[in-house]
Amino acid sequence: MEGEWNQIQLRGPNTEGLASCHAVTGSARKVRDNAADWHNLMLRWDKLSEDGFDVATNIVNIKRSQHEQLLVPEASSSSSSSATLQPSGAAELQAQCLKLLDIVEKMTAIVARMERLAASQQALRELEELRSGSAGGAAPLFHSWTTKQFEDASRLMLAAFSEELKLRRVISQELAHAATSDLSMVYLSCWLHQPCIPAQSRITLEALLLETGHRPL
């Protein structure tokens, strides 16, 4: 598992260069690993988000076809066909909803890991402050950031993902109950475009990766 989290360290082009010019031990080592974890967690999040979007689209389509089936027999006043078609559609809908809930559960696990990372950054800041005796730690660990800045970056990303997770919970619970197609569409586009995760959080991640040397400067 740990190897998977740290996969970014293995494939960064200048990892070796950085390892040789910086003594990556202690706090710096920990911050660097955390940055890689942030990156990998976000990748996993994106993958789950993509899978979830497919499932959510399925749910909306099943709902729509059920709705049409309900309308057609009413018009032709033959209710027998709807009675036979309904259960299979309902079972499928149920299955897709469970899938979506499962994905949201996985996303919850990711956010829980992000929380641990943020807590770890806070602890690192406190440790460095204690060691140096000054606020925010003494010398920068890498190029220019203090431990305080690493902590702030983690907090910012955590806040965005926590809120997005809440939004996803609501969507996963309400999607199958959306009354109008417009509302379904809004749910879907919320899922797809992740409105609670601003572009800034991705930029912060890039900054973090640059600072820790995972990305070449």
């Binding site: 609501v170 109008t180 197609s181 417009d182 509302l183 569409m185 919320c190 409105p195 609670c196 601003p198």
Partner: peptide, 23 residues
Amino acid sequence: RALSNVRVSSTPLGTFPKLEERL
């Protein structure tokens, strides 16, 4: 268009601040 047609504040999404603008 769908977003314009829906009053987000009266849906379950209403609890999220400025969601409509952000989306």
